[in-house]
């Protein structure tokens, strides 16, 4: 007789995703779906998809979903959270172009207001959807469609560390940066996502998990090499860890 160890979560719909082979957006979707299922909040949750490769996330999460204009997901989530009964859970799912370029104002002010929402921030150091342009999070020296000779600090400035930045705001209650480059880090990422949703459930205010993610297609390397690139190049620039935890006294 066999017993079940691991299966596809009911927090995701049955729909196959459109993501490129090996893109870790799919892993992050699954982790969010698993957390919604394990906390038994699928029926109580509204997700806000953003603009980027995850624009179609409304087809993949098995909760109520909507989709916001580029960068505006935290503002849309604020409205939804404020008009619904208090026990409803609201999250955004945003890329680094969406959140840290065009949406920088919305995310900073949502955090500053201490909005009781959860943000899943997928940092893959590039604009994936539009063909691999430089993002505010692209690494120094990183070659992209719009920095063909590598990002140059003198021309384009330095990468923005969103977790560190938002952690300075009093309204932010839980901020952690995690990764998806191996199984151990994926397990840690899920724990962080669970903590963020629990922060909201307990009414503690703004929570965000920044997840380091890959874009094999626009990085121009295969999926496994992309995981290695996260580990070797991204993590030194974007250290993992808890940047804010009001409950844990941080």
């Amino acid at each position: 007789m066999m017993e079940l160890v691991f299966e596809r979560t009911n927090g995701l719909t049955e729909k196959p995703t459109h993501y490129c082979p090996g893109c870790t957006h799919g892993i992050i979707h699954r982790l969010v779906g698993e957390v919604l299922e394990e906390m038994d909040i699928i029926e109580d949750t509204v997700g806000v998809a953003s603009v980027g490769c995850s624009v179609l996330a409304y087809d993949y999460f098995n909760c109520d979903m909507t989709q916001a204009a580029h960068g505006r997901a935290p503002a849309v989530a604020t409205g939804i959270k404020r008009v619904l009964p208090k026990d409803r859970i609201v999250f955004t799912y945003q890329g680094d172009g969406d959140l840290a370029s065009i949406g920088m104002a919305e995310i900073v002010h949502a955090a500053a207001r201490g909005e009781n929402i959860t943000v899943i921030f997928v940092n893959n150091a590039i604009y994936g959807m539009t063909g691999g342009q430089m993002a505010p999070t692209s690494l120094v020296g990183q070659k992209t469609a719009t920095s063909p000779f590598g990002r140059d600090i003198a021309l384009q400035g330095s990468p923005i560390r969103v977790s560190e930045l938002l952690a300075t705001l009093d309204g932010a209650s839980y901020i952690e940066r995690v990764s998806t480059h191996d199984v151990a880090s994926i397990i840690k990422a899920k724990k962080a996502i669970r903590k963020a949703f629990e922060t909201q459930k307990n009414g503690l205010g703004f929570s965000m998990v920044e997840v380091l993610s890959t874009c094999p297609t626009n990085w121009g390397i295969d999926p496994k090499e992309s995981l290695d690139w996260v580990k070797e190049k991204m993590i030194p620039e974007y250290p993992l860890g808890v940047y804010k935890d009001v409950k844990g006294g941080k």
Partner: peptide
Amino acid sequence: CAACGRICPDAVITVYRPK
């Protein structure tokens, strides 16, 4: 061990173990 299931971006894999 389910390592395959946890790293798969497309939720392709189900894992069982003998009871």
